[in-house]
Nucleic acid binder design. Sequence first.
RNA 1: GGUCCUUUAGCUCAGUUGGCUAGAGCGCAGCAUUCACAUUGCUGAGGUCGUAGGUUCGAGCCCUACAAGGACCACCA
Length: 857
Amino acid sequence: MKLSKTYQPNDYEPNIYALWESSGAFKPSGQGDPYSIVMPPPNANGNLHAGHALFVALQDILIRYYRMKGRDTIWIPGADHAGFETWVVFEQALTGQGKSRFDYSRDQLYQMTWDFVDENRGNMELQLRALGASCDWNHQIFTLDREVTDVVFTTFKKLWDDRLIYRGERIVNYCTYHDTSFADIEVEYKEEQGKLWYIDYPLVFPKAGQPKFITIATTRPETMLGDEAVAVNPDDPRYAKLVGQKLLLPLVEKEIPIIADSEVDFEFGTGALKITPAHDPTDFEIGQRHDLPITAVIGTDGLMKSPAPPEFINLTVEQAREQVVEQLDHQGLLRKIEDIKHQVPHCYKCGRVIQPLPKNQWFVSVKPLAERAKKAIRSGKIKFVPEQKGRELERYFDELRDWNISRQIAWGIPIPAFKRVEDETISGNTPEWIFDTRVDQTEIEVGGVKYIRDEDTFDTWFSSGQWPYIVTRGDLTRFYPSTVMETGVDILRPWVARMIMLGLYITDDVPFDEVYLHGLVNDEHNQKMSKSKGNVINPMGVVEQYGSDALRMGIIANRSAALSQAFSTSTVVAGRNFCNKLWNIARLTQLIIDDNPDQPQLEYDIASNWVACRLDQARRQIDKHLEEYRFAEAYDTLYHVVWNDVADWFLEAQKLHQNTSVLKQVLNVVLKLAHPFAPFVTEAIWQSLDTDDKSTTLLISQQWPEKLSYNSVKVKKFEQVKNLVSAVRNLTAELGGKKRVLYHNSEKLVEENCDVIKFLARLEDVVVASRSEEALRIPALAEEVWLAASASEIKAYRAALDKRLDDAKQQVALLEKRLKNPNYVKNAPKNLVEQSTAELAEQRATLKRLQVELKNQ
RNA sequence: GGUCCUUUAGCUCAGUUGGCUAGAGCGCAGCAUUCACAUUGCUGAGGUCGUAGGUUCGAGCCCUACAAGGACCACCA
């Protein structure tokens, strides 16, 4: 015996992976229709988490399956510089060394982050290998590689030339701690208990019969220092006559107009809205419509700044708020304070409140891009699993606003734009900003004019949004569009949406044909995993304990598309046990073959036909399930055919009558069907088999099983034997478990399969006899077969028989009622009616046998 | 405020165009076991499919309302 008693994954996995990798099996074959998956690049600086384990499992199953199906298959791995994410970690490390980002230049910081990432770089890749990812490492790309930045620059230029990129002062979401702006999508809104302050703004020249002031309501009184107007709804009768008049902005003593804008909600507060164009997105828009100046009183450092009155300058927002309220109260302008619950934007990383600030940034005009993307989904050019996620994206494209792509962090792809250095000698038509890819220089000269590089870097999603066509350039163009994009629902909007927009824009084609989305992997109690909760599952620990295959099967079991579901150790254990089952199937097969070396018996017995039929059905089902991305069901099908059919019935039967050629064939098919789901153990077994040319034979490179042939009559026969055996086992167990004698009235089925039935049903003996008093009829079987039982046992069993009788009666009544219903007979499909009729006959026969049985006792 | 998802056995989940006795894994109970595997085998118990209506010969599945949980979106200052 070559194989140890149980499968020890750690003894095999690393060697098996090295075998695959060195054999070149991960490379595309160049034969067959292309099948490609672009891996969502994991953070180069991080360790893999449970979500990665899930995506590796799903994508690798697809890749291995289609590779075996003969497709020209590639899975392209990547590593993400993960701009902001990595930056935050790097800065923490810097702080840990007592340093800060202000001690270095941008270029120094970039280099330092590069080195920092480089140190950890290999971990992620080793972990992908440990998970068995059969991706083509020759084509691995890092998101900061030259070939990536080249494409990103070209795209930026094209957008620029097409006037789809503009630089403008807009309100951005600014984290004053991280010192960078965010896209709308990166902001986390949290409901908070806040206050609503009601403040009187006096009119400069109150007219007779009119109020002397307007009361506004605000949750952020400190921003009033930057107010430029008070807006009311044009249809609001309370304020109709006041529109156009001036107010005196308290504390600042500045005159501001009362304007009318339909955006203003009558219902909220007093119906009068103070307008701070610099510090609120809505106010900014209203300000634009009414040509109001943008007066910023909060700086990017989060402190108050000029032109706020001197006493407020350099106060924090919170301090300023207190001061403002206090002074207003002092001046008798504070009318009332209400408690209010409202949504407050927070930095998703540090949790601090996001300040809306005006900032000059690069923006992408997304409307035309989004329109096209929406059409691609609507027309079915891109298919989503699950479908509703496609509809969700369509709605998202409708409401998407211009996309801020500038980030004020050093770690990322520099924006290839340079700003003119002000100089009186330059002519009026020299552009303020020019495109240039010499981003390694901070200052360049063009036509005698000096330009300085934009210090900002691109939003990571701007470059990763171009990933599918970036990674398929060169000799891989046949793999674009990729076949399926498999990724997490959480990045449907930030990533998938952008890949579709930019893919269509640059290549005039969709970036992928289908999108499969997986949900979050929660902890065992279905709570979201997070470092702060300490409930994070480390996939490498699971691999170490149970094996890579076990983790893979455990994590896909019971899981459906796009749903957040719990991680379950028990399904991983089930996966581990399944690996061991495969292992022992191989061991037994080997054992039998070793015992019968030179005489393969070619007699094709009924069990062999039956198992061929079961395996063939399973193959078709797995095909169908994988076609429809039903991973859990494909695995379930495999699990049961291997365990329940092959191991529990076929191999048990083979212990009696060996058929080495069929045994070999069955093991071969089992290993192939199982390979995408349990690659390591199946390959380990494959390598242990005696084959003519081992060096070139890898399971990973084998063809998926073809149709198996079998004799249906023999299949049916084994099915009957199996039913009889189960019925005997059942009755034996109910009667108390000891071995018994089976009597039969020269039944052909029993006669022909006497020894198999005896063996599988664990019978004392099988003898021909007429009905004995000391025996119980095997229930629900048409054959005249009885199991030996003493009178007292029969008596004790009477209750069970009574119950069976009741069940049968109920069934007969139900079927009769259904068949008597003329509407059923008329409307239901014919085969169903026939089926019901047949079943009724069967149930009536059963009923009759049970009645006889009971009478005889 | 809006949109979407979920609700099926003790737990985690399947259940593909409605079709008649709703499945799996784990857990639980009983029995077995020198014979590939205790990471085992056999047998079994356990569900009025969130609630209330409706459509239909027939509903876990379709429709309506409601309830609970979750996710996302939104400019209510």
